[in-house]
Design a protein around this nucleic acid. Structure first.
Lengths: 217, 217
DNA sequence: GTCTATATAGCGATAGAC
DNA sequence: GTCTATCGCTATATAGAC
């Protein structure tokens, strides 16, 4: 309340030993690694402290409680998703070739071990913090679909495709690509995919999409 | 070691109070109910015993450990999926109307609270027991797709559809229907769906499917 | 002196096994 | 109901950086 309260003091003049930001990063990295494999309940603060090479007290000096660490680690993992942007937007080659290339990018991204682990975690702790779910949704599937929808709109304007709702068509493409393989990985029916299945699946998807929306239809 | 050991005795003459099979069923029902909501780790044996109205000792007399109970409960829940067979196979009306009806059946089944909970559970404990994953896969998605594939084959034979791989087309239909809404429910971005979205989504799916595979194309 | 980090020890609660 | 293990979290004491 009073203007000279210690609580109101500028935080700038730091006295004492400065914090080591590397420890914070190490803690988050360790947490991310463990949470993603063993889940929230399956990961102990002890294990995180040990893996990060810091003491438990240090952990609690940076994060109020386990949930805060969880939130931070998951938030970073979610934002890491959007960074993956391997697929090319517009290039040479037939429409089919370009769609196939994008499909491959989608597919490999979404069936990666990291992405599967994240999906699992998001599915396992749905109501832990809705904000995290939303963050994941927007940084992952939604961002991917939005970008693809713009491509579809361009291709439509260029007369290569016939569609009225690019966003909906992008979603269809996205979920067709996810399809069977992603679900099997997610629930653990299989551990890894055969490259033959991958090719066949991608080809089938592109073929169906073009049959539905291709201008040559 | 000796042939008259009590352990070698024939199990037939049962002494003591006979087991009550109802308690076993009550335990499984309670476990199913709790596991599906709170997950494996989130459910304690105490809570199961309490809900089932049996003592913990009784629980352990029927199931070697928590995992065995989990396995039994999940196995039952998975088999319960296949029983839901609300959608009609062949009826009157246009092909589009029939596909729409089936799509509605798919959609409502897969977005039901029970199904979502099961999906969550299967995603959260992937390598807990691979047999369970396989059971879920075969009783759920695989069975659904197989049945639908037969319908597609019939429609193709009748000249209503043009497709070469009914199983693949069934999978495409299935995952198109799941789509965005199912994922949002699974990760908790939304709690329930707007009926308007449901209709629009189903219509879009059927429309795309017919554009790709309809004979009138 | 003052703050941060580390190590250790322990509390309170809960859960699985029997 | 008992036993034991573990977990989240805290208290205490000490060392080191400014």
């Amino acid at each position: 309340m009073n203007s000279r309260s210690p609580l109101m003091r500028r935080p700038h003049p730091p006295r004492g030993r400065p914090r080591d930001p590397d420890k914070r990063l190490a803690a988050i990295a360790a947490a991310k690694q463990l949470f993603v494999v063993d889940g929230l309940r399956g990961t102990s603060m002890d294990a995180i402290a040990k893996l990060a090479g810091v003491s438990k007290v240090t952990l609690y000096s940076y994060f109020a409680d386990k949930d805060a660490l969880f939130r931070e680690a998951l938030s970073q993992a979610c934002q890491g998703l959007a960074a993956e942007d391997a697929y090319v937007l517009n290039g040479p080659g037939t429409l089919r070739a370009r769609l196939t290339q994008i499909a491959e990018g989608f597919f490999d991204l979404i069936t990666s071990a990291d992405a599967i682990s994240l999906y699992r975690l998001m599915a396992a702790n749905p109501r832990r913090h809705r904000k995290l779910s939303l963050l994941f949704w927007e940084a992952g599937p939604e961002a991917t679909m939005q970008r693809f929808a713009r491509l579809l709109a361009e291709a439509t304007a260029a007369g290569e495709l016939r569609l009225t709702d690019p966003r909906a068509a992008a979603a269809q493409f996205f979920f067709l690509i996810k399809g069977e393989q992603h679900l099997k990985l997610l629930i653990g029916v299989v551990d890894k995919l055969a490259s033959k299945e991958r090719r066949a699946h991608i080809d089938r998807t592109v073929t169906m999409f073009l049959r539905a929306y291709g201008a040559a239809s």
